[in-house]
Design a protein around this nucleic acid. Structure first.
Length: 559
DNA sequence: GCCGTTTTCGGCCCGACTGTTTTCAGTCG
């Protein structure tokens, strides 16, 4: 329920801003939304409301709104706001270049309420007549709309709520199902929510639950294409006795399935004539290793998959990319250490933002020193988890780093990252990143592509150049597990395997509750077939220090 | 809307960049 409440509060804040309400009121809702999203307890019923009391920035009014959501299942307040402004605000806001002000301008002048209206206006030229709207902006919005159209879906960790909602309705109607397709494979970005139904008695109820768009029938299954809450997918109903064939077939990926079916052809067994009792029989029948769904991406898994190499949660001994209250994190270092101990970590790196990222309270040089002392003091207390003194330092447009070398030197490690000047050319960004890699104190490169799934593709740079340079300097690439990022992507990592790079898995947590994001990174690492040796989070602390020293010394020698 | 007070109002988070302008509004992190 927290996610739902948080989404509603975020929406309220956006509609209030659209209305031109007091900016601090808007911010209050936005803050409350973020806080509730990151609570470490669930708000399920009215009883839980008392746990909200006393949480900073959650006051009487907000609790009242939450109470209403719990009682009504929706926010009447938000509904009122939406009635006043019948705009699909969240959808429009997801287009880069569009903010609340422009959306209001478009709505008031051209009655643009959603992406469809916006598309009409973009291509009819109607937008040109509005004040402060020029060619470049229109092109940017066009690109954003097209990107969005092509990338409709959600990162798999962001789908739990909608899947929960959908499957609850299936269960209420006694519909039995298996999740299949991209979601079963935990693909980073899921475009289709696919299910296999079995043991079906009554399908007529389906139209109460989802929007049925199309029904196809083949020899082996019936396929119902549907939409639900802005997402689309398919429901497969296997022909008699073909449940496991269909589940395997629809799980994909296409190339994985084809490879298996080819092997069947070669052994003269007809895949579709078999009546399997379990999915693993499909593999065992032709004497190959059973491959679990997340590995079935067609990245050569038949060659490299080995259950002994799969990295598990307990192999993770720590991580390096966590924000504390020193910058824009909401948890104190001590709290983070406590939570890290609960996760069974040996160490955890607190890497706050650097000075120029003022919105994220990037640390001034004086604050860096103070934070360093705090970490020293915590170490003196001999905590279960060893705190590492890190930093996520901005790479400026010219490739220089946001702190001078004397400061960079004081950290246990430095992660370089791009947060600004996204619009530079490929050449400029490539030069910029490479020059950061050559700094002797830079150990890792955070969220390497800068993508936001379904929102923007990330900045442009010469992938080959940059990753080769990373290999030359032993720069560790991050696999960022923040759902909206999931950056790097498993396919990209798979393609890079010949370079011999090493990786760090990161939660990029701003709240202790999001430390679990690292499990998303772990899925990506496993999908790409990485082994423990390639994932620094599996190293013991002394080996981490050893590795970091080697990286730094390697670069200093080459200077 | 929240918070804290030398306590019920007044303060609360900024700065670069872009694209539009010709001095600045809006977006973004």
């Amino acid at each position: 329920m927290n996610k739902k409440i948080s989404n509603i509060l975020k929406e309220i804040s956006d509609y209030l801003e659209l209305k031109g309400e007091n900016v601090f009121k808007v911010r209050a809702y936005r803050d409350a939304s973020r806080i509730i999203e990151n609570l470490d307890f669930e708000i399920k019923n009215l009883e839980d409301l008392k746990n909200l009391k006393g949480i900073p920035k959650i006051g009487k009014s907000i609790i009242g709104r939450v109470e209403e959501i719990l009682k009504e299942g929706e926010s009447l307040y938000l509904n009122e706001l939406k009635k006043e402004y019948p705009i699909e605000l969240e959808e429009l806001l997801s287009i880069p270049g569009l903010g609340i002000k422009k959306i209001r301008l478009f709505y008031e002048n051209l009655n643009i309420k959603n992406i469809e209206d916006l598309k009409d206006a973009l291509y009819s030229g109607a937008l040109y007549h509005l004040p402060r709207i020029g060619e470049k902006l229109i092109e940017k919005i066009k690109r954003g709309v097209e990107f969005r159209e092509k990338n409709r879906g959600l990162p798999f960790p962001a789908l739990f709520d909608v899947i929960g909602e959908l499957t609850k309705r299936f269960k209420d109607h006694h519909l039995s199902y298996y999740i299949t397709g991209e979601l079963r494979r935990k693909k980073e970005f899921v475009k289709n929510l696919d299910f296999v139904f079995y043991d079906i008695r009554d399908l007529d109820v389906l139209s109460d639950i989802i929007n049925i768009e199309n029904i196809d029938e083949s020899l082996y299954y019936k396929k119902i294409s549907y939409t639900f809450e802005n997402l689309s997918g398919s429901i497969y109903i296997p022909s008699s006795g073909l449940l496991w064939n269909v589940l395997f077939f629809t799980t994909g990926s296409k190339s994985h399935v084809m490879e298996v079916i080819d092997k069947y052809k070669k052994t003269n067994i007809s895949f579709w004539k078999e009546r399997f009792k379990r999915e693993k029989d499909i593999y065992e029948k032709i004497e190959i290793d059973v491959i679990p769904p997340i590995f079935r991406e067609g990245f050569g898994e038949f060659k490299w998959y080995n259950p002994a190499f799969v990295i598990s949660k307990k192999d993770i001994l720590g991580e390096f990319h966590v924000h504390s209250t020193w910058s824009d994190g909401r948890s104190e270092i001590e709290e983070i250490l406590y939570e890290a101990a609960n996760r069974g970590y040996e160490y955890i790196g607190i890497s706050d933002h650097s000075a120029s990222l003022t919105i994220a309270h990037g640390l001034s040089i004086e604050d860096v020193e103070k934070k360093g002392r705090e970490i020293e003091e915590l170490r003196d207390k001999n905590p279960i988890v060893y705190p590492l003194f890190g930093a996520e330092v901005d790479i400026r447009a010219d490739g220089s780093l946001d702190y001078p070398d004397e400061v960079l030197k004081s950290f246990d490690y430095v992660i370089a990252a791009i947060h600004t000047n996204f619009g530079l050319s490929i050449e400029e960004n490539t030069r910029r990143i490479i020059s950061a890699f050559r700094n002797p104190y830079v150990i890792a490169f955070a969220h390497p592509t800068g993508r936001e799934l379904g929102i923007r593709p990330g900045y442009e740079f010469d992938r080959e150049e940059v990753f080769k340079e990373a290999a030359r300097n032993n720069i560790l690439l991050e696999i960022n597990g923040t759902p909206r990022r999931m950056d790097l992507d498993s396919y990209e990592i798979y393609k890079l395997r010949s370079l011999g790079l090493k990786y760090i898995l990161s939660s990029d947590a701003h709240y202790v509750s999001s430390l679990s994001n690292i499990e998303n990174s772990l899925v990506i690492a496993n999908k790409a077939g990485l082994e423990r040796e390639e994932v620094v989070n599996t190293y013991k602390l002394k080996d981490v220090f050893l590795l970091f020293n080697t990286i730094r010394e390697g670069k200093i020698r080459n200077e």
